[in-house]
Design a protein around this nucleic acid. Sequence first.
DNA 1: GGTTATTCCGAGTTCTTTACTTGGTTTTTA
DNA 2: TAAAAACCAAGTAAAGAACTCGGAATAACC
Lengths: 159, 159
Amino acid sequence: MRLSTKGRYAVTAMLDLTLHGGEGPVTLAEISETQGISLSYLEQLFACLRGKQLVRGVRGPGGGYYLGRPGDEISIADIICAVDEWVEFTRCGGNQDCQEGKRCLTHNLWDDLSSEIYTFLSSITLADLVERGGLRETGCVRNKKDDGELSVREGSRAA
Amino acid sequence: MRLSTKGRYAVTAMLDLTLHGGEGPVTLAEISETQGISLSYLEQLFACLRGKQLVRGVRGPGGGYYLGRPGDEISIADIICAVDEWVEFTRCGGNQDCQEGKRCLTHNLWDDLSSEIYTFLSSITLADLVERGGLRETGCVRNKKDDGELSVREGSRAA
DNA sequence: GGTTATTCCGAGTTCTTTACTTGGTTTTTA
DNA sequence: TAAAAACCAAGTAAAGAACTCGGAATAACC
């Protein structure tokens, strides 16, 4: 599983659609300004998202983008997979046979971990996030980082 | 949270230490050959890991690396944070005040998600992975991808 | 004490990806 | 017909990933 800034852009933009899609289509120009992402880059990201039917574009004036399906049917994994190519990590798999099993073992372990992360991200939908984020919708309560090291918010949710 | 190939290299290498650390220190040369990563690149990664006390280096002939602490006390998040810089995503946080709260909302949501992923990866230790992977230690049972789209192994663990 | 295997260190180089730019074309509303 | 939007494709700049090179320090072994 790959989780880069590109994926974050996509997730954040999709969140925007989820939040404001009820008020009509959301234009890329709006997202571009709100999130500080270049318009053309957004277009590229949305081309990927459209390809997977995660968003639906409406052309012409007054147009913009809607979610392709309800927010509770779109997982974070869906979004990330649409824009971030799922790269194959193992070098032994496929072509080459694994040498002495040892190499293969750690790769299996990684694959397991990878699957778990994917399963985890598949279990979180846009609707989940919005529902949860609504708790603090009043005001702007960003937590300041202490020393910039980890920036993990304590107790955001019990695991 | 950032999860790139760099982090994978580190996790896979650490898994190698976990698996074979009992038989004496593991050299980077061995890992380099087994995993197909260049030696100097590994050195750089291990410099990061050493900085966080995740590994302990032994110099001289017969030397190599041990885990810095027991495998059940090292989480995947520890490893990834050591090598992959934790980049701050939000542009409004810190310096600039959030504009009209809207911008801030999606960023809060992203932060929440980010925290969750972190919490999740913090809950998985090297020992966990080895224990779980041991189930298939016999032979080399890699699952072939069906169409290269998602490569998710079904039923790896019930969520 | 010298040789060798290893970690340690830093300054580069190359390649890929990210992120952006430019300049268009379609579509649709008003 | 004009304007606002999605669409599209090619190119560019910056960043990061991955690697290379050349060495230094440390410790084991002969």
